[in-house]
Amino acid sequence: MPNEFNIMPAMRVSATGLDAESRRMEVIANNIANANTTAAPGGNAYHRKQVIFAAKLASEMNKMGQERVAAGVEVKQVAEDTRPDKLVYRPGHPDADKDGNVRMPDINVLEEMVDMMGATRAYEANLAAIKTSRAMATQALGIGR
């Protein structure tokens, strides 16, 4: 963090959560958008992607010399699903092989929908955490009043 002045560390942590969940949402949207893509870069069918989260390293020490445990989450990698392509018999299709089969991505839109719901709920949970840290800060500011 370049900014030393961190009045709400919990909010920074939740912000990384929001970041990660929105990356996940992007990847899911890309999966749904490409559910029927036969010509992804490289000439093959599109392969389903998924994000892999990792806990951020809490190596930073704060001014008092205490180690900060909470550092948030980050997207470690956008990995490709290893499931094989679906073969669909479509003889006139420009991407068909000599037997008339087209390789289609094996994307289950229902599965993506469920993933999407998970991403939405996780995003909401992070938002709730942010709201709570904000409320706590406001309450602390009101101590003297």
Partner: peptide, 13 residues
């Protein structure tokens, strides 16, 4: 969310 979190932080400060 990045923008709103930063605005919130600035507001609390």
């Amino acid at each position: 969310h990045d923008v709103t979190v930063k605005m919130e932080e600035a507001g609390v400060a």
